[in-house]
Design a protein around this nucleic acid. Sequence first.
DNA 1: CCAATGTATTTTGGATCCAATATTGAATGT
DNA 2: ACATTCAATATTGGATCCAAAATACATTGG
Lengths: 233, 233
Amino acid sequence: MTTPEGPARGVTAESGGRRRPPTAQQFVLGELRRAITTGRLRPGDPIRQEALAEELDVSRVPLREALKTLQGEGLVTYQAHRGYFVERLSLDDLREVYLIREILEAEAVRRAAGRFTDEALREAERAQAEVEEAAAAGDVLAMAAANRRFHMTIFEASGLPRMVRMIRTLWDSTDAYRSVYYGEPANRERVIEEHRAALDLLRRRDAEGTVRALAAHRAHAVTAIEGVLPDAP
Amino acid sequence: MTTPEGPARGVTAESGGRRRPPTAQQFVLGELRRAITTGRLRPGDPIRQEALAEELDVSRVPLREALKTLQGEGLVTYQAHRGYFVERLSLDDLREVYLIREILEAEAVRRAAGRFTDEALREAERAQAEVEEAAAAGDVLAMAAANRRFHMTIFEASGLPRMVRMIRTLWDSTDAYRSVYYGEPANRERVIEEHRAALDLLRRRDAEGTVRALAAHRAHAVTAIEGVLPDAP
DNA sequence: CCAATGTATTTTGGATCCAATATTGAATGT
DNA sequence: ACATTCAATATTGGATCCAAAATACATTGG
């Protein structure tokens, strides 16, 4: 039934040589995020604490604290005495997340554009360079990460830290689906073009233009994702 | 030391006759929320787990899980190996929370108004009756609770559960300040009037009117709270 | 055969104990 | 007197163990 294999393969294995966080709960948190976004833990799956803890080579205590964090972010649900389950995102849920993003990000971008510093601009350009590099190399994961940095750099310029935190959480909750989007070469091309356009508008401090550009950018992503979602609910 | 006593009593005492939740972490979560919103735990305070756990007559394990939840909601902050601290809301933070609420609630109300059922209307009217009762009795805590039910009933009619969850979290994070608002009799009167106006508009399914009315309602609260905040940061 | 009931097993919830880290305070040297 | 180092203490982080609840399973009666 369960992996006849003993200690640590599956989830643990692919840590790619990153430095391990200072506490086990933070380490587990990262591993869980990856497990969920890469689909290793699938939507609807119950999370068996004992097995997972053993696999990650920690006790259940830090695992449970990490799960509480994920619960707060909406990546897992919790029922008392029954445990945690990987959240199942319906099409409606996905649309709702994007609706909320639409609303919050519009405001964040609007504010950011008005007060965009040269430093922030350079930071965004650097992120964009990484996006293009990763795209050229066909590295989907790296591209998703760089793409995130690109957008977050812009949001952070809004000077609204709580808003940024909420947006980040919303991104987290749909990570799994977004990576699908980057799988398509055509989408990768489009992302690059749209980012360049947004950067141009930011250089001119054109707030409304940037808002519109990024809204369109987002809309493209969501329609593309909606298309493939029924296959992997 | 620890309970030679069997099933849990202890500091539970002051729960005003509410039914105790099925798990200790949920119980602790409620107690912590109250402690923070009533000012028993003050902004900036470090949270000493051992002492608090003993006071609540639980071990540190469920306490820490509850703290993780609060961290996700932004009511406490966390530093590895240093522990949890009650979040300190600056004036800017407060304004940001209200800005985000403004944006999200406008959308929620807009959608809710269009699809407001008679059942939802009755529910809102019931909540409003409780608000008026509590106001008449001068029971600030009960009024805050009923007020919350009134607004949440409306938000929930939007059919956007995630959005409602986020709004609820935003309310949580400023509970402490809002109760101050209800302390003033004049404010209590105004709240009642404004709620009645909103209900009228809802009965006519006037979406934009309701949005405007509730936006004004919110604006009154925030300016009033801003006025008193410097005293209790 | 099916439903209901009681029992065994699994799984989560929580308490206690120990380890790791941070903080405090005293002693020491300059 | 001041800064620095090192020991003592307090506090958090985590592992293990036990209790409580839920689930799975078998048994019995209809």
